[in-house]
Each structure stands twice: as C-alpha cells, then as structure tokens.
Amino acid sequence: MSEPLLQVDDLHKTFDRGGRRVRALAGVSLDLARGETLAVVGASGGGKSTLARVILRLVEPDRGRVLFSGRDWLGLGGAALRRERRRLQMVFQDPLAAFNPRATIGQILTDPLAIHRLAATADPADAVVGLLARVGLSADLAARLPHELSGGQRQRVAIARALACEPDLIVLDEPVSALDVSVRAQILNLLHRVQVETGVAYLLISHDLAVVRAMAPRLAVIDQGTIVEAGATATILTSPGSLAAQALIDATPRLIVSPPAPPATPTPDGERKP
C-alpha cells in the first residue's frame, strides 16, 4: 500500500476562552491518500475548523503528530516551513475576507508565484492570466479589487491562488456555503475539474452533507473534538453509526416533491384573476 499523503495522529488542542478551557481537539487521527477527497463534517464547535487550522500550521496543537508525505509536518519551522507550505493550500469560506482588500487580483495571484518562484513564463502577468483562465475568469479581472468581484468570481480567484502554488493538498473550508445557491454548482464543478486535471487531494471541511455527498467518497464525522465515525460516505449516509452523523443527516433539508396539485378548479372568486 502506498504511503498516505497526510497522516494525522492523536491531535489535541485546548483553547483558553475567557478563563474557560475549551477542548477543541481531543485525540483526532485520520489519513488521506494522494488525490483523494476526504470530508470532515460536524456541527460548529465540534472541532473541524481547529483541525483544519492545525493541519495548515495556523494554530499549534498541544500534542499529536502530523506527517505530510511521510515527513514530520509539525516539526518544520521558519524558512523550511514557508517553503513547504506551497504543497498544502487552503480555500476559505468567505472569499471576501480571504483577500487583502487593498490588493488587486493580479497582485493576489502574483504573490504565491513570486514567493515560490513558480512562474512558468518570464512575465508574471502572463502567469496570472493563465491562472485566471484555468478557473474560468477573464484576464481583465487582474486589475480589479476583490470587492469589485461577485462571490463566485472571488471563490474562483481563491482557487486560482491555491493552484498557483501547485499544491498536493487543498483544505476546503466550507467552500460554497457563503455563495449564492445558483453559483454553488459552478464552484463544485470547478473543484472537481481541478482535481481531475491536477490530481490534488482535498480535505473538505463542511457541515453541508449534500456537498459532501457530491464531492467526497470518504467521510469522517467529528464531534466534541473526536472522530466519532469514519468510512465510505455512501455507507455512513445510509446507515450512520453515530448520533452526530444521524443528527446531521436528519437536519439536512430535503426537497419535498409531492405530485403537482391538480389544476385549480374554477372558483367563484374568478374576478381576482387578471
């Protein structure tokens, strides 16, 4: 069996919130293969955001181990960490908050290229145009500011920024929940296409089981800082083995499709019809 891309082993993290100790992670373990999509679902406060931030080295855990391509990921620091960060990227929930409001889209996409010296062409502007095209955006957006874009366009730029780093793994933190309903499918399609094209692995953090069902063949349910259930998404959704999973499934809104009502019988108040 090939070595997993990401191995998370017994992560613990406790926050101090105004004197109260909050256990966000209480021994979380999971692993993720190259090119795979694993979803981590759970109620808010269950620890899924903390898990994402620990894996991204934005928050340091109290104890535990993370191996990324077999190497000790938590032991990296300084310049070595910054160099390796390229391989582990993130797409945030709120694409407006995830961009420096004063930077143009062009600058936002040039940064990762310059930091990691990744531009395939001599001219970074060409590379930016190429990145925009890969996520289905036109080149003239490069001169705009984030707030001038629509939510869907911003999330495309966020995906382009992650792609600029040529990562092995992208953490998707609720990637469509802040978007308009009519735009969500476009972004999910884009994420799917990117994975097919590049073989990147996704760690999908979400509370929306419908999105998880579409994107992730494998699923881990996190509740109160521990993984209470993990396995094939289809299996867990049809026969959940944990209360947390059951509660999430029951709570997911279902479209109630009843047979269409018979044509309205003419009523005496026909004068109301225009």
């Binding site: 629509s150 939510g151 869907g152 366009q153 308009d180 309903v181 009519s182 735009v183 969500r184 499918a185 476009q186 999910l188 399609n189 799917h192 296409r193 089981l209 419908a210 999105v211 069902r213 579409a214 063949p217 998404t233 289809a234 959704l237 499934i249 997911t252 279902r254 479209l255």
Partner: peptide
Amino acid sequence: YTQALIAGHLDLSRAPAFPLPAIAGAP
C-alpha cells in the same frame, strides 16, 4: 430559474455525476 434551482438541488440519496447541473453566470 426555479427549474434550474430544483435541478441543481443536491440530494443525499445518491452521489451526483459531474458536472453538476449549474446555472451559468452570477446574479
């Protein structure tokens, strides 16, 4: 628009095939 919203609704009972039915553009 309503038709597209309903066609695009993701259901738990089955894994949808990609590409998902999507409405082009933005509001």
